Amino acid sequence: MTVRTRILILLSAVALLVAVGVAAVLHAAARAERRDHVQAGGPAVTSGTVLLTEHGRMVFRNMAWGPHRDELTTVPRSDPAGPRTASGVKCLRFYAASGTGVCLQAVHGPVSDTYRALILDARLHTRDRYDVPGIPSRARVSPTGHFAAWTAFVGGDSYAGTNFSTRTAIADTRTGALIPSLEAFRIVRDGHPYRAADANFWGVTFAADDRTFYATLATGGKTYLVRGDLRTRTVTTVHTNVECPSLSPDGTRIAYKKRVPGLPKDAPWHLYVLDLHTMRETPVAESRSVDDQVVWRDDRTLVYALPGDYGADLYAVPAGGPGTPHRLLPSAVSAAFLD
């Protein structure tokens, strides 16, 4: 090979590398331009202070693209479409009440992720932390702020099928004492003691007495609403075909997702409200399948997540039955309303 030929080959290689580099830069610039356009058209999000004692606010996990994605973020309850203030604290699931928050986080490792639950004070400082044995799914804080609960998938990753297992824990936020699994509680089903290896719990919701809670129990191919007692470590079945219950602020009703025959296997639920005194079920005016533990904005309105362009959007619907659902907040999930 002559020197001239070698030079031509070298020049050709250099030209090819330059072309590849220019193409990569142009592609990155185009992606940045598209990303900036999406951000410019979405909600405005800025860093600031988020307090869990600031009345008249809602706090949620921000799903909008940008530097504040996944951070706990707040807006006024009266203006949910207004500018968002982001805290810098990232959570996969979140809830708060009476100045106490629970934040379920992923801890990214070199080989795989692990998960933890953080108990937060009113300024989002960590008071306690606990290992979580699987993918976070549900989180709740009692109305007094004295207890926090969370559910994680420890086998499978969806409530839609039957091949999954969960672990639900409850922590006393005052003492740090942990109940690592509700499976240790005594079960009373239909008035009789009940034991089964397939008992599975998820979706705790607390009453205001620092003793009573509700949750879902799955066993024998059925799901039950159970009423739990933190003092006696007992759960008692109340109603069938109830998943992810949420107790109303006045303590009289449970909102939940119910499996409805004829719906697709991967989207089998409709939202219902159960009157705890009469045991009457009322379907709400949401025709889409909702896989969420709904939140009561007040005694009349339910808030829940549905899939959206950037992961999830929050919707609201009347709890009484008739009405029309509407999108409350785009690019958001895991809402808590601060009273």
Score class of each variant (00 low, 15 high):
residue 105 Q to Y: 10
residue 214 Y to C: 03
residue 142 S to E: 07
residue 209 D to N: 09
residue 222 K to W: 04
residue 160 A to G: 09
residue 196 A to K: 10
residue 176 G to L: 11
residue 108 H to E: 13
residue 119 I to N: 12
residue 223 T to M: 05
residue 97 A to L: 10
residue 160 A to N: 13
residue 178 L to R: 06
residue 183 E to G: 08
residue 230 L to P: 01
residue 201 F to S: 04
residue 208 A to Q: 08
residue 105 Q to R: 15
residue 188 V to A: 11
residue 197 A to D: 14
residue 159 Y to I: 03
residue 190 D to I: 02
residue 226 V to T: 09
residue 191 G to P: 06
residue 136 P to M: 01
residue 182 L to D: 00
residue 159 Y to L: 08
residue 149 A to T: 04
residue 103 C to E: 14
residue 99 G to K: 05
residue 127 R to F: 01
residue 119 I to V: 09
residue 144 T to E: 04
residue 158 S to P: 13
residue 146 H to V: 01
residue 131 D to G: 12
residue 191 G to Q: 07
residue 156 G to C: 14
residue 161 G to L: 02
residue 145 G to H: 07
residue 119 I to C: 07
residue 131 D to E: 11
residue 223 T to Q: 08
residue 215 A to C: 03
residue 117 A to Y: 10
residue 204 V to Q: 01
residue 152 A to T: 14
residue 223 T to E: 09
residue 153 F to N: 00
residue 101 G to L: 07
residue 201 F to M: 01
residue 195 R to K: 13
residue 127 R to L: 01
residue 98 S to M: 11
residue 122 A to C: 05
residue 215 A to P: 02
residue 218 A to R: 15
residue 128 D to R: 15
residue 159 Y to N: 11
residue 196 A to W: 09
residue 163 N to V: 13
residue 205 T to M: 00
residue 109 G to C: 02
residue 94 F to W: 07
residue 128 D to Q: 15
residue 215 A to G: 07
residue 197 A to G: 11
residue 210 D to S: 06
residue 201 F to E: 02
residue 179 I to G: 10
residue 160 A to V: 08
residue 204 V to A: 00
residue 225 L to S: 03
residue 120 L to W: 05
residue 125 H to S: 01
residue 146 H to S: 07
residue 188 V to S: 12
residue 123 R to L: 00
residue 148 A to T: 04
residue 188 V to T: 15
residue 185 F to K: 11
residue 119 I to Y: 07
residue 224 Y to C: 02
residue 196 A to D: 13
residue 173 T to S: 10
